[in-house]
């Protein structure tokens, strides 16, 4: 087993992103949930159509990356394309958890209930 993307030919990554090097949006966290708003169409770039099929149900950016075996960086570029064309929507994390700011206690209580019910 090889780690995804590890032995990836850099030229292939370049092709996948059609030479573009930057995601047009920084909006995608590792756990941003992506949802398809449209079906894949014939002639669409294969990575784009795979993402649209995969994200019929909410799917995190890291899951898309693991499934496509492409680095998160490359996946962010592909997702930006789809977001810009209105083919997906993105549900961003609502934690507001940062080093300086703890998540609010209500959210943590929900997490505790969920964990205790496991």
């Amino acid at each position: 087993m090889t780690r995804p993307g590890r032995d990836e030919d850099p030229d292939r990554l370049y092709t996948v992103t059609r030479g573009r090097s930057r995601a047009s949006s920084d909006a995608f966290d590792l756990v941003t949930l992506v949802v398809s708003e449209s079906d894949a169409t014939p002639g669409m770039q294969s990575e784009h159509s795979r993402i649209l099929r995969m994200c019929q149900y909410p799917t995190a950016v890291v899951e898309v990356s693991a499934e496509l075996k492409l680095p998160v960086t490359v996946v962010r570029i592909l997702l930006s394309d789809l977001l810009d064309s209105g083919l997906i929507t993105a549900r961003h994390p609502q934690t507001a958890g940062s080093a300086a700011h703890l998540p609010d206690s209500n959210l943590l209580e929900q997490v505790l209930v969920g964990l205790r019910n496991l």
Binding site: V31, Y57, R91, Q94
Partner: peptide
């Protein structure tokens, strides 16, 4: 098999 999340999932925590 990929096990999908429910349609209402909208908040990913880490």
């Amino acid at each position: 098999h990929r096990t999908p999340l429910g349609r209402s999932a909208d908040n990913g925590l880490k």
